[in-house]
């Protein structure tokens, strides 16, 4: 049996989605604008896209690049952030570099990167990598800095060497914070994935979207927006599941509904 409060909590996201679609439908009927299709029109275009083999190949190619960029960024950024958090010298070296890169929209680097690396997978994956890196580095850095000194002392007294302390104490202790960074990184990966494909049209979900836009197929454009949004929600929900498992030991006792998981 579910409590009334629990039911409401479950139903709320669904109600929000339905509400949004209703508002959309009504607004588009009222405006009667070609470039603003009805919600129904957009939704009925979704099966056409997902049923088309070429579109599916494009979307999967996007996801593959995103996974590679995200994975590589996490593998590089976590150790770097942790090192920066524990060593003032390393932090002093990398901080200015990161501060320069930080405010630049990563997709704006796309044209230059394309000049060097072409319009293929490498350039797009690199942009995703850059987009994901900064929040992960930042949160790893903050997490590592906040590790209680006495915890490291305890480890040192047990005979852990500095590298072992970094891997076996700083990493797990900072994990909740690191995963917060990864979650932001995941959303940014999706955003940079689409924008990179907008600039380097060749394949991918962004390619479908912007081609449709050029050709005035607005149903398809909005259907793609829904698909990308749904992908974001699903990825975030999956990530949230994984995260909750990994840091069960640090979760607050009351639960905070942060996502639709």
């Amino acid at each position: 049996m579910m409590s009334p409060a629990g039911m409401t909590k479950r139903a709320a996201p669904v109600l929000a989605c339905i509400g949004l679609l209703v508002v959309w439908q009504v607004a588009s009927l009222a405006l009667k604008n070609d470039s603003f299709p009805t919600a129904m029109g957009a939704i009925t275009a979704i099966p056409d896209i997902l049923g088309d083999k070429e579109s599916l190949v494009n979307i999967l190619a996007s996801l593959r690049r995103m996974a590679m960029g995200f994975g590589a960024a996490v593998l590089v950024s976590i150790p770097l952030g942790l090192l920066m958090g524990r060593s003032a010298a390393i932090a002093a070296f990398f901080n200015p570099l990161l501060m320069v890169i930080y405010p630049v929209p990563k997709a704006a680097l796309m044209p230059i990167i394309m000049l060097w690396l072409g319009v293929g997978d490498i350039a797009k994956t690199l942009v995703i990598f850059l987009g994901v890196s900064l929040p992960v580095i930042y949160h790893s850095f903050e997490g590592a800095k906040a590790v209680e000194e006495k915890m490291l002392w305890s480890g040192a007294a047990m005979g852990l060497l500095p590298v072992q302390r970094l891997v076996r104490i700083v990493l797990p202790a900072a994990l909740p914070e690191i995963l917060t960074g990864c979650r932001t990184g995941l959303v940014l990966a999706l955003i940079t994935m689409i924008t990179s494909e907008m600039i380097a049209r060749q394949s991918g979900a962004g390619n479908i979207l912007f081609n449709a836009l050029d050709m005035g197929q607005y149903d398809t454009v909005f259907a793609m927006i829904i698909i990308v949004g749904a992908m974001g929600i699903c990825l975030d929900a999956i990530f949230e599941r994984v995260r909750a498992r990994l840091v069960r030991w640090s979760e607050p006792q009351f639960d905070m509904p942060l996502s639709f998981s």
Binding site: P172, W249, S250
Partner: peptide, 8 residues
Amino acid sequence: EFALFPWK
């Protein structure tokens, strides 16, 4: 401050 390992 105890300094236990909270993940263990």
